[in-house]
Amino acid sequence: MSDADAETSETAVDPMGDVRRVLGPDGAVVGDVPDLSDERLLTIYRDMVTARRFDERAVSLQRQGRIGTYSAIEGQEASSVAATHALRDDDPVFYQYREHGAVIARGFPAEYLAYWMGHESGTAGLADIDVFPLNIGIAAHLPHAVGAAMAFDYRDEDRITCAHFGDGATSEGDFHEALNFAGVFDTPSVFVCHNNQWAISIPREDQTASPTLAQKAEAYGFEGVRVDGMDPLAVYAAVEEAAQQARNGTDDSLRPTLIETVEYRFGAHTTADDPSAYRDDADGDPWRAWDPLPRMEAFLRKQGLADDDRIEAIREEANDRVAAVIDEAERFEGDPADMFADVYAETPAELERQRESLLAAVERHGKDAFLREE
């Protein structure tokens, strides 16, 4: 590390406390770098840039009424992207609703954005890349992730599950039930808790008396670790180790791990949220120095893997990739009858009457008459 790098690392306020870390705020190496090829390092950065560009476009699309309520990822790109790169392609990912980087790292099908537009067919696109549909019920997907891991164990399949969730999920019963099952039955599970400091408007310290979220794993008999969630290399290393432990375990016993990724949500909880009602803009200032994108970019430059031309090419590629997904997603044709499907096993007479009434109106006036003008 150069004197200038050391000075930058020392002067940046560290809001995270005791965490595992590989990169300083300036991209200087301060820990053990995982054994990754140059191409994989560049791909992780490329996926992070794509995630941020997708975030910018998605917020804009929501404001234009072209997609529904959206959960922003700015500041948290490293944790979902790097965690997914540390898995095998057939290890299912269960996520809450903010970990867009996991989908991007798995290929970023256009159906994903179509899902946010209200097309249920988007679920099939996620299934094709072993990502379970996004979950709105807080922590409700965790028992399913543990159940899938138990099934892999019973069938002697060499697969694990990785479940993402926010710090607020640790206050839900499903979190405790899922981790208890995981500990009792030694399931091949990796739990990634994104501690972005806020459960919507509730700060972390107001929802648990535990000094850390990682230590909650001790109650269930397995390990919990804290990692700098804005450091992609630290996240990769932690998830890689946890995946190895889940896959192989010790003494013929598989072992789950709870990873607390300490990070900050720069934007609103969702596009329906106004964070100025519960936090000051200055609250995020200490975290800006740890932004994952410039940190990873600085690391790549220091390693001689990127220069101005390559960085610009990656940004252009990310922009084109996101634009192509938007163009394709907006070609999806919705069927108004879908809103009545799968509500009941046998459709009640009143619901059937409403369905027929709507379809008759669509037939008379056309679909365009029922779309909001942009």
Rank of each mutant, 00 (worst) to 15 (best):
S2N: 14
T8N: 14
E10L: 14
G17Y: 06
G17W: 01
V19R: 11
R20H: 13
R20V: 12
R21Y: 04
R21S: 12
P25T: 04
G27H: 05
V29C: 03
G31M: 01
P34C: 00
E39Q: 15
L41S: 02
I44E: 00
Y45V: 00
V49S: 08
T50W: 03
R53M: 09
F54D: 04
R57H: 02
A58N: 07
L61N: 09
Q64M: 11
G68E: 00
T69N: 10
T69I: 13
A72Y: 01
S80T: 10
A82H: 05
H85S: 09
A86I: 00
A86Y: 03
H100D: 10
I104M: 03
R106E: 08
Y112L: 07
Y115L: 15
E120L: 11
T123I: 15
A124D: 13
D130G: 05
D130H: 15
D130I: 01
V131M: 11
P143S: 04
H144T: 00
A149G: 10
R159K: 13
R159D: 10
A163C: 09
F165H: 12
A169H: 02
E172D: 08
E177T: 00
F181S: 09
V184K: 05
V190T: 05
F191W: 07
V192G: 06
C193H: 09
I202L: 13
I202E: 11
S210E: 06
P211V: 04
T212C: 09
K216R: 15
E223K: 14
V227D: 00
D228W: 10
A234L: 02
V235Y: 08
A243N: 00
A243Q: 01
A243M: 06
T250W: 11
D252V: 04
P256G: 04
T257G: 02
H269R: 07
D274L: 10
D274R: 14
P275H: 04
S276T: 14
A277R: 15
R279C: 03
A282Y: 00
G284R: 12
P292A: 03
P294L: 07
A306H: 06
R310A: 12
N319W: 11
D320T: 09
V322Q: 08
E330Q: 07
F332D: 12
P336Q: 06
D338E: 14
M339C: 11
M339N: 10
Y344M: 06
A349Q: 11
E352Q: 13
E352H: 12
R353H: 13
Q354P: 03
E356S: 12
S357K: 15
L358M: 11
A360M: 08
R364A: 15
E373R: 14
